[in-house]
Design a protein around this nucleic acid. Structure first.
Lengths: 214, 214
DNA sequence: TAGATTGTTAATCGATTAACAATC
DNA sequence: TAGATTGTTAATCGATTAACAATC
C-alpha cells in the first residue's frame, strides 16, 4: 500500500490533531468530510480522497465517527508504535526539539542527544544528558535506532550524517541547511527554516507589486 | 511576474546557499546547471527551469557565472531588502528562532519578541528583551512590520493571530500546530514539525513492509 | 569547426478537484 | 421516501522531466 502522496500523510496528521481535540471536548460523535475539511482548511473532496487511500472509514449519508476515525489514523500513522530517535546537536534548535511537546503523542521519542562541544556534553536537556558524539554509534546499535535528527552547524552536518548512516540509521531529518550526500537507501527529509520564511517574504513582495500596479 | 511554483522559490534559496559557498572558496567562476543541480540534489533541467522564470542568467555552451548568479538570486529573493519580523512566544522554539543564524543573510530580521508569561517578560533572548503581548500592536504599527512568527502554545495561537492581523500583519509563519482562521488576504504558512517527522516514520514503515514481502 | 550547455517547448507525471452513483 | 454524505472515477490543474534548437 504505497503511492500515497506525501501531502496526504501530512494532512492526516492535521486531521488527527483536530479529531483529538473534538474527542476531548466530547463534542460531535460524528463529523462529515465537509466539516472536518472546513475546520482545518482543506476541501471535503480532499479529505475523502486522503482517507480513501487507506480504506473506508465513513458511513454514507452520515459521516465519520470521530473516535473511530481518530483511532484509525493512529493506526495508519503508526502512533501506537514507538519510534526511538537520536538527535545530534545540542544548540538552540536541538534543545527546543527535545522539549517539543508535540512529538510524544505520535510515538516520536528522542532517546539521546549528542554534541561534540565539551562545554555542552554532560548538560541536562529536557530529561536527557548530552552525550559525546563518540557515543553515537554505540547508542544507535544498542537501542536499534533507525531515525535521527541532525541539528548541527552546516559544516558538521555531512560528517555527522555519514557517522549516523554507518551506525545503522535509515532515515534522517536534517535541519542543517545543506544537501547531504548519502546512499540512496537512506531517507532524508529537509526542514529548511530560512527557505520557508523566504517563500513568505517573496509572496509578500509579489502582493505589493500587484497592489501597486492596480 | 507570478505563477512561479512554491517549490521553485525554495530551491532558489538552496541554489543561493551553494553558490555562496562556492564564491567564498573562490572556486569555479562558472558552473553548469548539471553541476549545480548535482551538488544540491536537483536535476539539471529543474535548475534551468527554475531560473527561467526570472530571466536568462546563463551563457549557452558555457554555464552560469557563479558570482553573478548569486547576485541575481539575492535580487529575486529580496535578500537586499530588510524584512522586520515580530515573533510571539518566548518558549524553546521562539528563543531558538531568534538565535537562528540563517535568517540575517536573507534580510530576515526579528526585531521584537513577545510573550504573555510574566516570568519571561524582561528576559534577554539573543539581543532582544522579551516584551509583553500588550505591546504587540504598538510595536507593529511603529515599525510598520508586515511579517510575524507565531511560536506560542496551540491554545493561544488563534488569539495571537487575530491580534497580529488587527495590528496590520500581512503574513504569518505559524509554528503552532493549529489551523488559523484568518481573513483571506493574510498569507499564512504552516511549519509543522511533528507532521514532517511523521512522514519520515511513515515512509520507514512502508520500506519495512516492502522489505518483508520481498 | 566540434563540443558543451543554455533556454524553451512539448510530454509526462502526480496531485487536486469535480461530479455522481451508491447507500445510509 | 427525501436528504445527506460517502467512496470513487474522470477531468483538471500544476509541476517535473525530456528533448532539442540555438548558440557560445
Amino acid at each position: 500500500m504505497d503511492g500515497v502522496p506525501q501531502p496526504t500523510i501530512e494532512r492526516l496528521v492535521i486531521y488527527y490533531r483536530y479529531l483529538k481535540k473534538l474527542v476531548a471536548h466530547d463534542d460531535d460523535k460524528v463529523i462529515s468530510s465537509l466539516d472536518l475539511g472546513h475546520s482545518v482548511g482543506v476541501s471535503a473532496a480532499q479529505v475523502r480522497k486522503d482517507l480513501s487511500y487507506f480504506g473506508e472509514f465513513g458511513c454514507k449519508g452520515v459521516g465519520y465517527n470521530v473516535s473511530n476515525l481518530k483511532k484509525s489514523l493512529e493506526q495508519i500513522l503508526g502512533f501506537n508504535q514507538n519510534w526511538p530517535i537520536v538527535l545530534v546537536g545540542a544548540g538552540n534548535i536541538g534543545r527546543a526539539l527535545v522539549n517539543y511537546p508535540g512529538f510524544k503523542v505520535m510515538g516520536l521519542n528522542i532517546i539521546a542527544i549528542f554534541d561534540c562541544d565539551l562545554d555542552k556534553i554532560g548538560n541536562r536537556v529536557g530529561g536527557l544528558i548530552v552525550k559525546s558524539n563518540k557515543e553515537i554509534e554505540r547508542v544507535i546499535k544498542d537501542k536499534g535506532v533507525e531515525l535521527a535528527i541532525i541539528a548541527v552547524p552546516v559544516d558538521e552536518a555531512q560528517g555527522v550524517a555519514e557517522k549516523l548512516v554507518k551506525a545503522g540509521i535509515k532515515a534522517i531529518w536534517n535541519i542543517a541547511p545543506v544537501t547531504l550526500k548519502l546512499p540512496d537507501n537512506v531517507l532524508v527529509y529537509y526542514e529548511d527554516l530560512a527557505s520557508s520564511l523566504v517563500t513568505l517574504t517573496y509572496r509578500l513582495s509579489q502582493k505589493r507589486l500587484k497592489a501597486r500596479s492596480n
